[in-house]
Amino acid sequence: MTNTIEITKAQTSKIHDVDFENLSFGKVFTDHMFVCDFKNGEWQQPEITPYAPITLDPSARVFHYGQAVFEGMKAFKDDENKVWLFRPEDNLLRINKSAERLAIPAFPQDVFMEGLKALVQLDEAWVKQGLGNSLYIRPFVIATEPAIAASPAVEYKFLIICSPAQSYYSGDVRVLIAEEFSRSANGGVGYAKAAGNYAAQFYPTNLANKEGFQQIIWTDADTHQYLEEAGTMNVFFRINDTLITAPTSERILDGITRKSILKIAEDSGISVEVRPVKVSELIEASKDGSLKEIFGSGTAAIVSPISAFSYKGEVFEIPHQEERFSAIFKEKLLNIQYNKSEDPYGWRVSI
C-alpha cells in the first residue's frame, strides 16, 4: 500500500441543491468518498472518488454473514472558518477493535488519518458554521468477497462517507427500561460497533415507540437487573450530586463522548462513580427524590437528556433541574469542538 491517495474530483457539486436549514440526519451526502480495498492479504491503493453507488456481488459475504463494522465522528467549523476533528485517533482505534472481533483486518492509522483529512478538506464547504452544525463522518468496513461459505472473507472494502448534520435530537426523551430484550450478552460483540448490534435493537425499540417512548435503556442479558446503555448511547445517572455510569465491558461500547464527559466531570470537581447500577437503585432514587438527572451520550446527539423512564408499567418522571450536569457537559464539549475554548486535553485536531 502507498500512502499517496489518488483523488478524483467530482465534476459538479450537489451542495447548491441542499437546504441546510432543513436537514434530515444521515440522508444527504457530500460530493466525495474515501475508498480502499483489501485484496491478496493487504490493503490496496487508497482513493477519494465522487460519491456514488458501489457494486457488489449478490454473494458478497457481508450480505450473508454480517461482517460489517462502522464508526461515527464529526468535523466542526469555528468562527474563523477553520475545520476541526474531535478525537479522531480514538475512532480509528475503536473501528480496528471492532474489526478484530469480527475477524476483519485492521486499517493502517497513517492512511486513515491522511484519507480522512483529505476527504474533509475536499468537502470543506459542506461543513457549516454555527453551533449545532457539523459534518457527520461515517467510516465503515464491509466484507466484499463473493462467497457464501461460512468463514471470514478475504476481501473487504473500507469507506468513509460524510453527511452534513444539524442537532440530532431536540428536547428530552422518554425511555423504557428493558425487561425482556437484550442489546448484547457476555462473550458477544456488544463492545464492537458491529452493524448487526443495531439491527437487533430496531424491533424492541419499535415496540417501545408504540407505548410512547423514544428509546430503551438496556439491561444486562443475564438478570435484567443492571442498567447498561440508553438506545444507541452510553447512559449517565445523577443521584444527588454524584455522576454514575456503568463500566465498559464486553457488552458496553467504550464511547468517546462518554470518556470525554467523565474527564470533564472529574476536572470540574464533580463526584464520579463508574460502577454497576441496579434498576432497583434507580427506582428508589426516583421515589426518594435523589435522582436528579438521566442522560445519554454519543457522537450524534452529544448529550441527550431523559425526562422519564418506565419499568414494569410504572412511569417515573424526572423533575427538571435548574442546573443540569448534562447542560454543563454539553456546553464544555461543544466549546472544545467548535474551538470556542481552550482544549487542555489535546482532543481537537486541525484539518
Rank of each mutant, 00 (worst) to 15 (best):
T8K: 14
K9Q: 13
K9F: 03
K9R: 15
A10Y: 05
Q11A: 14
T12M: 05
K14W: 11
I15F: 10
H16L: 06
D17N: 13
D19H: 12
F20M: 12
E21I: 03
E21Y: 03
F25A: 02
K27T: 13
V28R: 04
T30E: 11
D31A: 06
C36F: 07
D37H: 07
K39H: 09
G41Y: 03
E42Q: 15
W43D: 00
Q44H: 11
Q45S: 05
P46N: 10
P46R: 08
P50S: 12
Y51V: 06
L56V: 10
D57C: 10
P58G: 09
V62Y: 01
A68R: 00
F70M: 00
G72L: 01
G72K: 00
A75R: 04
K77N: 06
K77D: 00
D78E: 07
D79T: 08
V83Q: 07
F86A: 00
R87I: 07
E89C: 02
D90N: 09
D90S: 12
N91W: 05
L92I: 12
L93P: 03
L93F: 08
R94G: 01
N96G: 07
N96E: 04
S98N: 02
A99S: 15
A99K: 00
E100F: 10
E100R: 09
R101K: 14
L102H: 02
F107T: 03
Q109I: 06
E114H: 08
G115N: 10
G115E: 05
K117P: 11
V120M: 09
V120W: 09
L122M: 15
A125T: 13
V127D: 04
K128H: 12
Q129I: 03
N133H: 07
L135I: 08
V141T: 14
A147K: 06
A150S: 11
P152Y: 10
A153H: 03
E155D: 13
